[in-house]
Each structure stands twice: as C-alpha cells, then as structure tokens.
Design a protein around this nucleic acid. Structure first.
Length: 727
DNA sequence: AGATACTGCTTTTTT
DNA sequence: AGCAGTATCT
C-alpha cells in the first residue's frame, strides 16, 4: 500500500488535510464533504507515511456503526491486523474497556455493570421515594438530567451548585443516587466518561501509560463532545500533541446531552499550534438541496459562514407538501415512495422525523402497501420488557449486588414474592448495609422469614446460584437456556401478554415477544465465548439489534438525530410543524431553537438527489386527539427557487430570497358555527371567549381565549364546546 | 399476602 | 401506548 493509493480520489483540500504535519489538527468540514473518509485516510496515511504503529493509535467515532465502517475501510487499505490493532470505537466503549482494565486504580470493581437509562430511572425513583420527595415537583427524569449534566461537567455531588432550594434537593438526590449506584456496583453512561477523566486526572502513572499507548488520537464529530470527553482527550494528548479532530459546528445537535461546541475554541486555546483545514466541497447533494439547507442554517446567529459548494448543479426541486393529518401525511409518503420505487431501491429512501412516536403512522402506511422498511431506534431492542427481564437475570449472575436488576427479576415471572416481602428485603438491606440480594441471604440465614415467604425467597436464591454454576461450567449460551427453562419464561409470556389489536404480521403479541427472546438467544450464541461481563457491556453500549442485523434493502425510518452521518438518495422529512420541529420543549431559548434548526439542516443535508418536506395541518398528540398545528417557522426560510410547489407568478424585481416562499393556506370565507366574541364552555378548559374563527378544508378552527388556561386553537367539530348565552 | 383488574396521567432527541 | 397507584379477587 503506497501513498498514491491512500490519496486517490481526494480533492486538493482533502489531500492537504490528510497529509497535515504531525501535531494538533482541526478539520472543519461541511456536510457531505467526506470528513469521515478524510479521518480514515489520515489514520492509514499516518501508519504508512509516518510509520506509526497501529497499536499507538486511537480513533473515536460517534456511533458503533461508524466505528465498524471505519474498521472495514482500514482493513481494506492496511489489512486485517492493522485495523484490529487500532483502538477504535465510541468514547463510551473505549472508556468502558479502560475502566475494566484499570478498575482497581479507579476504585471500581472489574465486575461492574452498566446501567442504561431505564435502570437509571428506576434507581432515581428509588432515591426520590427514599428522600420523601414529591415526584411531581421533583421528576426523576429531570433530576437525572441534572445529574447527567453535572457528571458531564465533572462536577461531583459535593460541588453541585446550590443557589436555589430546588438545586439543593437535586444535589442531595445526586449524592444519594451515586451512592446507590456504586453500592449496586454499577456505572451509568455518564460515569464511564467521568470515571475515566477522573482516573487520568488523579493517577499520573495510569495517565502516562495511556498517553504512551494512545500516542495518536483521532476524533470524529468533535462538535458533539462534552466536557468530560474533552478532558479525556486533552489529558491523553497533552504529552505528544498528536490530536486529529474533525468537526462541523452546524451539525452540533447533542447539546442536551452535554455536548459543547465551545470545545472547538478550547482546543485552539489549549493547543495554540493547532492547524486548521477546511473541507468545503460537498459531494453528496445537488445544488438545489444544498441551497435550501444553507438558507435554513444561515439564519442561525454567531456561526462562521461556510462557502459550501457542489458540482452537482441543478437537481430535482424540493417538494413541500401539506397534509391534513399524520395519517394523510403517511399516505402521501408511502404513495410517493411507491412511485419512486420504479427508479429507486427501497434502501435508497429514508423517512425522518423529530420524535420516535411519529413513526407509527408511517409504519402502518408502509405495511399497508407492502413496502419493506426498517425502523431505527424507536422501541430499542434491549429496552423491551422481555429482553430487560432476561438481561436482569444475566446481570444478577454477573453481579448479585445489582439492586435494580434484583428488583426487576425477583418476582418475574410471579413467584410469590410480593410488595410486602420486597419491602422487608429493602429494609433489611438498609439496616445491615447490604445489597438486596445479600439481604435476602441474610434473612434466610436468620430465619427472619417463615413459611411461604421463606420458600419463595429460598427458591429464588437457589435459582441464581444454580445459574452461576451453569455459567461457570458451561458458559453464556447454556446460561440463557437454563434461565429460560427454569423460569418457564415462554409460559409466562403467554399468560402475561395481553393481546391488543391484531397485528399486520399475524403474530400474537406473546409470539412477537418470544421472537425477541429468540433474537436475544441468537445474539448470545454468537457471543458465546465472551465473558459475561464483556457481553453485558457490549449489549449496553450497542443498544440496537438493527445495528446487528445485516442491511436489508428496505426503506429506513429514523429520527433526525440518528440520521447523523448517513446519506440517502431520497429523503423525506416529516412533521415540519411548530411544536414538533422546533419541538415544543425547545422553544424557551434562542439556543434551543438554533439547535432545532441545525437538526433540520442535518436532515436536509442527508439527501443526495430528492428531498421532500411535509407537515400536517393537524396532528394527534399522544392520545389527546388532534389539535391544529402551524407549519414550522423554518419553512419560511426556504427560497422559492428550490421548491416545486406551484408558485404565484413572481416579478423578476422582487427578491425571492428574503421572502417566505410559502404562505399558510388561508381559508376562504364561509359560514362558521362559532363567531368572534361568543362565550363558550369547554369540557376541560372551562369558560372562554372566541377570538378567531377560520375554515380550513371542511374543518372549522376556533381560537378561544380561556380564562384559566389561555388561548387554544380547537377543531370546532371535535372539541367538547358549547356556546353560552350572552349576558 | 399476593395476583390481577381498572383508572388516570404523561411522552424529545441517545451513548 | 405504558406505568403507577388503587380496588378487588384468590
């Protein structure tokens, strides 16, 4: 393998970036500019040209999928061995490995288990109960958010800023949460980063060891690193300054997870000799798509404008489509896909949305037309109840001190250990300072429980001990089989799964769950030679079985967040409504709205050839029925030229760029049931006054100012409204 | 004491 | 749609 090959097919900017002199390097790149490709080539180039040993390199990717792809490319260029020798993976995976190896120095047990977000939530609920907090005022979820933010900033409970009473409570919850987590011998996702950062900060020897081991570091999607990750990078790279980082500020969409685009500035400060390279040529999208995306992102303030360009002049105009509701929207998408399938493969098409809940209508519509699809994320495989149940057993075998898993597994399937008994176990655990599993053993030894309860607890404990033996003697594969057999899990699924509406695939809900179990078993047999701990770590960090199943030729449904780093010839972005995108939870600050805008930008720039944008006039929000919605403000920024929607004749003189390309559909005047000024009574909102009536399609929309809840837009035909007589 | 049936409440995004 | 809390059944 020689240099010519490594630089083959790269443009001048890319070549320059790949062949940058050793030292700190920042590559600022636009979407579709081949930044991951540059990163991969750089790794190869360093090995070939600078004679860097692959053992001395670490490459951090944003997803497992990206890591897998990078490894494949490296294997093709340098051979299997070199590709395998490099440390390559997500931050979390790399940190998990380091912590397992350095557990003792880090003050952890090497048997630790990783707590996923479900486990975190159970634990925090426990904390809220224990501290006697009102779970309405102190929502476990929002407490977890605070904890996560603190951990990402490397702030321990004792240093948690307590300016308000609420913060004080959060600090106490954080402290207790952390205490319980460590007692369970668990680490949550944020701990993986925090503990690694702390380890490198505290222990010079370990830090030097890894500085030497990972002498050259490469990082993809650097704009989405958080403080903890930055500290880790900084500590590792500060000795040799061989840090190669690829970023695009405009694609920073994870600030809610602690990601801080200011890390780019920090990098400049901490490594003054940093060299910066730009990648401005877009190889992915047509001019039309790029123009539209640029118009949307240009509205964000304080960004460094980029000069992105593409040689793919022109292109198919973007379709903007208003649908009546989400069902109509899904129908449009499916019908359009059906038409496109004459010239595209199903795998060429992706449908994106802001929230996972939006996938349902789309799925139904695709199933109805027999269009194959695969769903990314949504109900994550490892988050399904049946899978979590079984993983809880596995985790208990690995680490009996895992209280969350114990609470989950102890009475599933029901084996006569009810709330009362569990309360006694918890009590004993607290009194004796034991984990719950050990408290059960203690209760049994002391004969503190009798009769049926004693037998039930004894039976449970013997099961776990038996399984431990099975695992030690025969391994992972047999362990899962024993668990399934001994718990009679299939029978449990049959009796405890309630059938809902008939499914399109004809399976009963119980059968579908059993299929998931079989899928888990397949995963286990593939990993049968892994130690249980490694298997559980992998499972916790991979998180989606779709990642494991091989790519099939199917339409992809995914959130805008998970679309990052991907590309498709045809992209649909659905649900472009106020409250959806931008999401109603992200309307408070300009920064939040800016991030929502970047999210749309990321979605749009995934498209190579065709882009569809859709919004619904009305969308049901969970189960609350349909409420009218307004088209997203971001649509206002689309220049008329890029849209295919029939436009009113424009005169040459008017600048179409600054004008909204599109106007909300104004209903023509017809008869309305309600009138401005009417006093009305609503079943839930109480009394109010009608402020506005409009007809749209066949529906009448009234805006009512309610005395207690403020203004609401309602569908007159569906809302429980009555007109009150005028006084 | 445990299991089950019913009712009301809440949903962003992910390693 | 799923979960916690409550009421009722075994």
């Amino acid at each position: 393998m020689d240099t010519v090959n490594l630089l083959e097919g790269l443009n001048a900017q890319q070549r320059e970036a790949v062949t940058a002199p050793e030292g700190p390097v920042l590559v600022l790149a636009g979407p579709g500019s081949g930044k991951t490709r540059v990163l991969t080539r750089r790794a190869a180039w360093m090995q070939v040209e600078l004679a860097v040993s692959p053992w001395r390199m670490m490459a951090v990717t944003f997803t497992n999928k990206a890591a897998r792809e990078m490894r494949q490319r490296l294997a093709a260029m340098l051979g299997e061995n070199a590709a395998r020798a490099m440390a390559l993976g997500t931050f979390h995976a790399l940190c998990a490995r380091i912590l397992r190896r350095e557990a003792e120095v880090a003050g952890l047990s090497p048997d630790y288990v990783i707590f996923d977000s479900d486990d975190q939530l159970s634990l925090m609920k426990q904390v809220v109960r224990e501290l006697g907090l009102d779970d309405k005022r102190y929502r476990p979820r929002s407490l977890l958010n605070s904890v996560s933010r603190a951990k990402n900033e490397l702030i321990p409970p004792t240093e948690y800023p307590t300016t308000t009473y609420h913060d004080l409570v959060a600090a106490r919850a954080y402290a207790r949460y952390q205490e319980l987590l460590r007692k369970s011998n668990g680490l949550d996702f944020d701990d993986l980063l925090m503990e690694t950062a702390k380890l490198f900060q505290a222990d010079d020897l370990v830090r030097e060891k890894y500085q030497h081991r990972y002498r050259h570091i490469l990082v993809d999607e650097f704009q989405d690193t958080n403080m903890a990750q930055y500290v880790i990078l900084n500590l590792l790279a500060r000795e040799h300054h061989s840090l190669y980082v690829v970023a695009d500020e405009d694609q920073s969409i994870y600030s809610w997870r602690g990601a801080d685009a200011r890390n780019i500035r920090r990098l400049r400060q901490d490594f003054p000799e940093l060299r910066t390279y730009l990648l401005e040529e877009n190889y992915r999208s047509t001019q039309v798509i790029l123009d539209a995306a640029q118009a949307v992102i240009a509205r964000n303030r304080g960004r460094t404008p980029k000069r992105l360009f593409t040689r793919r002049q022109g292109g198919v105009a973007i379709r903007l489509r208003e649908a009546y509701d989400e069902v109509d929207e899904a129908r449009f998408v499916a019908e359009e896909i059906q038409r496109l399938l004459r010239s595209y493969r199903p795998g060429d098409v992706a449908v994106m949305y802001r929230t996972n809940a939006q996938s349902r209508a789309l799925e139904e519509s695709l199933v109805h037309r027999n269009i194959p699809y695969r769903l990314i994320g949504a109900t994550r495989f490892y988050a399904r109840k049946e899978i979590k149940d079984l993983l809880a057993y596995l985790r208990l075998v690995q680490n009996p001190d895992d209280d969350v898993s114990l609470l989950r597994a102890i009475n599933v399937p029901p084996r006569g250990i009810g709330a009362r008994t569990i309360a006694r176990v918890s009590e004993a655990a607290a009194e004796q300072g034991l984990s719950r599993y050990r408290a059960v053993l203690w209760l049994l030894e002391q004969r503190a429980v009798k009769g049926r309860t004693y037998n039930a607890l004894l039976a449970f404990v013997s099961l776990v001990q038996q399984w431990l033996q099975v695992y030690q003697e025969t391994g992972l594969d047999a362990l899962l089989e024993s668990i399934l057999a001994d718990t009679n899990y299939r029978a449990y699924l049959r009796t405890h799964t309630q059938e809902r509406a008939p499914r399109s695939d004809g399976l009963s809900a119980a059968d579908a769950r059993w299929e998931n179990v079989m899928a888990l078993q397949a995963v286990v047999s593939e990993a049968a030679d892994l130690p249980l701990g490694d298997f559980l770590t992998e499972v916790a960090l991979v998180a989606d079985v779709d990642e494991l199943s091989e790519e099939q030729d199917a339409v992809t449904l995914l959130t805008l967040h998970s679309a990052k780093g991907l590309e498709y010839p045809v992209v649909f972005i659905t649900g472009l409504e106020e409250g959806r995108l931008p999401h109603s939870r992200s309307l408070d600050t300009e920064q939040e709205i800016a991030e929502e805008r970047r999210l749309l930008y990321v979605g749009m720039t995934r498209a190579k050839e065709r882009l569809y944008l859709t919004y619904a006039f009305r969308r049901s929000w969970g189960w609350g029925g349909g409420e009218p919605s307004e088209p997203s403000r971001f649509l206002d920024d689309l220049p008329a030229e890029v849209l295919s929607r029939p436009q009113p004749q424009r005169t040459r003189a008017t600048s179409t760029w600054s004008q909204p390309a599109w106007r909300p559909s104004r209903p023509q005047q017809r008869v309305t049931q309600y009138h401005v000024g009417d006093r009305v009574q609503h079943a839930h909102y109480g009394e109010g006054t009608v402020m506005e009536c409009e007809l749209s399609g066949h529906e009448e929309v009234v805006t009512v100012l309610f005395e207690h809840v403020g203004a609401k837009r309602l569908l007159a035909g569906r809302a429980p409204l009555t007109v009150l007589p005028k006084h």
